[in-house]
Write a protein that binds this DNA or RNA. Sequence first.
DNA 1: TTCAGTGCAAAAACTTTGCAGGAGG
DNA 2: CCTCCTGCAAAGTTTTTGCACTGAA
Lengths: 152, 152
Amino acid sequence: MIPEEIKDTFLNYLKLKAHRITNERFLILDSALNIKGHFDADELYLKMKNDYINVSRATVYKTLELMNECNILTKHNFKGDRTRYETKIGRNPHYHIICVTCNRITEFEYPMIEKIQNKICKENNLEMVDHTFQVFVKCDHPETCEFNKRLN
Amino acid sequence: MIPEEIKDTFLNYLKLKAHRITNERFLILDSALNIKGHFDADELYLKMKNDYINVSRATVYKTLELMNECNILTKHNFKGDRTRYETKIGRNPHYHIICVTCNRITEFEYPMIEKIQNKICKENNLEMVDHTFQVFVKCDHPETCEFNKRLN
DNA sequence: TTCAGTGCAAAAACTTTGCAGGAGG
DNA sequence: CCTCCTGCAAAGTTTTTGCACTGAA
């Protein structure tokens, strides 16, 4: 159920960097890709444990880092929270709105923002590797927050 | 040398929230505002210690949080690093380019981005509290990186 | 066969908390 | 005078590391 394309991306990256192809790495890839939305290393570790897939926390941390390096995952830190990951492959660039009242995270796409990033990188001869754009907002009534009701 | 306006902002916030006006809080405000660019709690603590201003680490952490709440400082987390702070008052909104090769952080302003944020917030009835936009880039030759030479 | 990867536990790094004493309102 | 704030150390959280063993190449 995991697209072969992503497995190949990971496989090629491991080969390129002369990292070994291990079963654990692909078990972690599989489990990570089966999570919808954001997750952190410990959540993934616990989910795998719950599914009777036993890999160590350390290996989960290390493998997520590898998956970030080869652009399968993107890393976010929302205001001092633990590091959260998100699948990148097969997704349009998107940005996050974090409600400081609800604590809910909502995504939005905005192609103009990509254009701005590309322009700035081109002008300065930089190769863009990743990006994260977070807008922190407040909605006074979480229960009735139209924004969250509509977009989540 | 610290603008009265910022002290007043802090003072008013403390009063509003019925927090006490203590010497430590203003010592920390002073020291934080004297740092150019980004800093973290421990750096500030050590800088103060070096200046023979003795406040505890715990108080520094708590006070930075207060200064963030009242919008004197903004908080950033650059890819899993520790939480870093930056003075907000008297500055235009700006965004960060982080070179994953050099580890250098460069700022840029781009009013169009504010317009986009305001538009999205307005459309969804949200009150914007803060934002952080980070573009991660790569420059192959840190020493000769035109980008960093020019903008730092 | 060799050495990177794994699992485990211990350590490190960063931040928060509990408590006793002190100071602001 | 009553709390809240402070300082200190201890505890909590998240992530990394050291080491012996295992398994990929």
